[in-house]
């Protein structure tokens, strides 16, 4: 059976679906017997999700958008 270290090393490729059938099987067997690795897998996936949701909330403030529009307009007119 593979150990936790190997399991976490394979996590990335597992989630991408890049592992061959045999490796996937031994990884899933490990998960069945190892609740800590299941917790690790779940929190690893959650991390990506909540970081993405938080960092994607960046919006351009209205004032900055207006300034940018003006700069671009002036620049185009002077060319």
């Amino acid at each position: 059976m593979i150990c936790c270290k190997e399991c976490l090393d394979l996590l990335y490729d597992y989630l991408e679906g890049d592992l061959d059938a045999e490796t996937t099987k031994s990884l899933e067997e490990h998960f069945e017997d190892c609740p800590p690795c299941i917790s690790f897998l779940n929190t690893y996936q959650s991390t990506t999700k909540i970081c993405r949701e938080t960092l994607n909330q960046v919006e351009i403030p209205e004032a900055i958008r207006d300034t940018l529009l003006k700069v671009l307009k002036d620049h185009k007119e002077s060319n």
Binding site: C4, K5, E6, P36, C37, S39, F40, T43
Partner: peptide, 9 residues
């Protein structure tokens, strides 16, 4: 090669 810390989900 087994995890040493307690992993909370």
């Amino acid at each position: 090669g087994f995890q040493q810390e307690k992993i909370q989900d």
